[in-house]
Structures are given as C-alpha cells and as structure tokens.
Nucleic acid binder design. Structure first.
Lengths: 219, 219
DNA sequence: ATATTTTATTAGGACACCCTAACTTTTTTT
DNA sequence: AAAAAAAGTTAGGGTGTCCTAATAAAATAT
C-alpha cells in the first residue's frame, strides 16, 4: 500500500502538525524538507504523489495538510514505532537512546497481525519509553496526562505539548523566549526562592518564571 | 553495507548450495532466477555487482559460487530469519505458516545488537519453528541431528538433507524417483510388512523401499 | 511600491532494481 | 558434426527515490 518513504513523509508531516486544528499549523515544503533531511525539490515531487494518493492536500505554493486518510496512516506508523520502541526497551533491554534507529526500521514492517499481537504481548502499554503516548488500533491517542512545567520533576526530560493560556500576549512572549510547541528540554532545577524553573534545551540553559512554567504543558 | 535485495540473492545462493563442498553444487544464473522469481537478465546484472563486492565468484558463462564473505553473510541473514520466526511463533503466537513472510522482512533490519539480544531473549534456541537449525553468531550451524527416513516417525514433516550411500547407482535411482536434496515431505506411514515408507511430497504420494529409506537423511 | 529574501517549482540527471527482446555461448540431442 | 535446446548475456526501457541548478511565486524589508 505505502512505501517506507511515503510513511516517513506522513510521519514527518504529523510531527510538524499538518492538521489545521490545534498545534503549530501546516508546514511548507522547505520545513518538511528540513525535517526529513531531503532537498526541497525532491520533497516537492513526493508531495505531488501524496496528493494524487489522497493523503495530503496542498494548493500550488501553499501549505501542506494531511487528509483524514493521511492522518490515520501517519498515526498508524507512529503506533508501530512506539510499540517497537517499547519492545526493544522492555524486552530486549535496549537503552533509551538506542531504540529509535531500530524502531525507525521496524515501523515499516507490513503484516496484518503483527502489530496488534505485539501490543498484546507487551500488555497494551499506553506510553513508549520516552513517555510518548501509543495510539490504539483505531488511531486514537490515549488521553494524555498533561502536566505543567511547574509540576514537573527535576531531571525530567520532556517536551512542550501545549499551553494553558492561549492569549496572543503569552504566545508572543514564548516566541521571544525561543519556546515553541514540541521543544524538548530537561528540567535542571526548581528554584525555591521564587518558583522559577531552570531548564536546558538544545544546549542552551535558560530560566523561566513561575508564571510561565505554570502555563506550559509538558509530557 | 548490503541492501535487502543483495541479501536475498545471497540467501538464495546458499539455499541452492553454491558452496562447492557437499550438497548440490553451484547454481547457474537461470536456476537462481527461478529461485528468486526474477528474470535471468536482471539476475545477471546483480551477479556482476555481487562479484565486484567480492561476495560471489563466477567466470563468464560459468556457475556461481559464494565466497567466504558471501557465505558468512548469507548465514547471518538466515540466522536473523530463523530467530525472528522463532520469536513470532513462540512469543506472538503466529501459526507455522504465517511466520515466513514477516520474517522475510524482519531479517533485513540492521542493528549491531538487535539479533544477539533477540537470541538471548528467546533463550538461545537451536532450531526454528520448522525445525531448521539456527546458526550461531559466528556463522556456525549447530550440529544437525541427522536421522534416516527409516527412523523418522509417522506424520513427521521433514526434508532430505543428505544421503548415506553416495554411489552413482543410488543417486541416479533417487533422481528417477524424483527425490532430491532439500525436498520437503510428510511421512505418511511405516509399512510393517516389508519396512517400506509411504510419504507425500508436493501433493504426490509415493512408497519407497526400506533400503532407500535407510540411506536417506532427513531433518 | 519596489527590491530583497525566502519558499516553491521545474528541468535534467543519477542510482538501484526490475523488465522484455534479441543475441551469443554452451550443452544436449540426433 | 550439425541441429536443436538451454543457459547466459547485452541492449534498451521503466519506476522510485534521491540530487543540483535554475526559475517562478510569495513574503518581507526598505
């Protein structure tokens, strides 16, 4: 049905939030190319194919959106990826950082039964070793346990998954801080004095105020 | 290092006994093409590539032989295939006939640690669900338990893995019976009267004499 | 509003793997 | 030994996925 390459494109689009609804909004050709580490010209050609297959919607020179079919398949691939990661971590004792590359290959194995049986074997886990939720076989993500950055423990590695305050003011402020949806970070310290949180992301250390921390949802 | 396609060629050559030593001897381009269900012209091109990579030896218009490097890699792929089959059968409860197609994909997953950890997880099995031996990580097949057809139980599914008598007479006789190395069969009945063995292979039922049965090794 | 920069697209090419059709070499049959 | 059959090879294409270089459109800056 789908090639491994096509699946990787869908997955990347999903990651980039090509879903209209919440999130960062649709991605463009260049952004997708960057995400996949493939040249824009190549991506452009593949998008044509995905459009023809009804997986993606895009007007000339426009942003890319996953169709319902595209979204469903993207989620299916993510489900496979996360279940395989869980298998590697829990059953084969791979370390946190080793699982990804192998799961990247395993997620493309085609079989009617394989992934459901693997899920059963693993005891229907709800999150993978990175804490990411595992979608069910109908493409639904389990209700995420959303916690604010302020409640998160020291040393915890997490990602920004949403905000409590949706005001333009707050979002613009986040922008200025370099904080965006999906950003991965490590909670370095909770500072008792004023409730500030020290964190580290992409090699950069920063301190954010308690008020900001209370309004950032992390996983 | 190797593409999935290259690995499939190596595996097929190994199956066809392209090892000089015992067995059926080296295969030709056509035979390999038949085995892989790929046209001879295509196989010819791939053989050039495998020769350049030092995996195969072949003179113009000559038979194909695996080099030591080729043989080692073929065995490695077979090891992966059989360990994955064992996993699917024992842990995910796939049936005997479902495991092959999925293992055919899984055997090409690349990872330094994966297969050794899987082997450990499975408890170092020595044979796969079909009774085929699983090579160890150094490319050695475990000592096969070779039994003659005469000693084999009724209902047993097995393959001809060798002969006791190597005379031209006997081998020509086997040829006439349509019995060849690697042939899969089911032992239907042991006939007490004269020790004959009734068996079934590829939908054809036949009876062979006790003397022949005593000289055929099966797995 | 025009110039610049960024983003998207087109054109043309490469490589892996597959094909069919035609041809050559080797083997087998007569 | 010549004819026929089988096996191996070459020539020329096709698809999928990638590339670079050049161009067109849109967004941004002046």
């Amino acid at each position: 049905m789908f090639t491994a390459t096509e699946e990787n494109y869908l997955k990347a689009l999903f990651r980039l939030g090509a879903l209209t609804e919440g999130g960062k909004g649709p991605a463009g050709t260049n952004e997708l190319a960057l995400e996949l580490d493939i040249r824009p010209a190549t991506v452009n050609g593949m998008l044509k194919k995905l459009r023809e297959k009804g997986l993606v919607e895009q007007r000339r020179y426009g942003k890319i959106l996953l169709t319902e079919a595209g979204r469903l398949h993207a989620v299916e691939v993510i489900r496979k990826h996360r279940l395989w990661e869980t298998f590697l971590y829990e059953k084969l004792h791979f370390s946190w950082d080793e699982v990804h590359d192998v799961a990247e290959q395993l997620e493309h194995i085609r079989s009617v039964n394989l992934i459901d049986r693997l899920e059963e074997f693993l005891g229907y886990p709800s999150v993978d070793p990175h804490g990411d939720p595992i979608p069910d076989k109908n493409g639904r993500m389990p209700p995420e346990v959303r916690r604010t950055l302020a409640e998160s423990e020291e040393g915890h590695v997490c990602r920004i998954v949403g905000v409590c305050d949706n005001s333009a003011e707050f979002l613009q402020y986040l922008d200025r801080l370099g904080l965006s949806l999906g950003l991965k970070m490590t909670i370095t310290r909770h500072i008792p004095f004023d409730g500030s949180v020290e964190l580290e992301s992409a090699g950069i250390r920063m301190i954010i105020t308690r008020k900001v921390a209370e309004n950032l949802l992390v996983d």
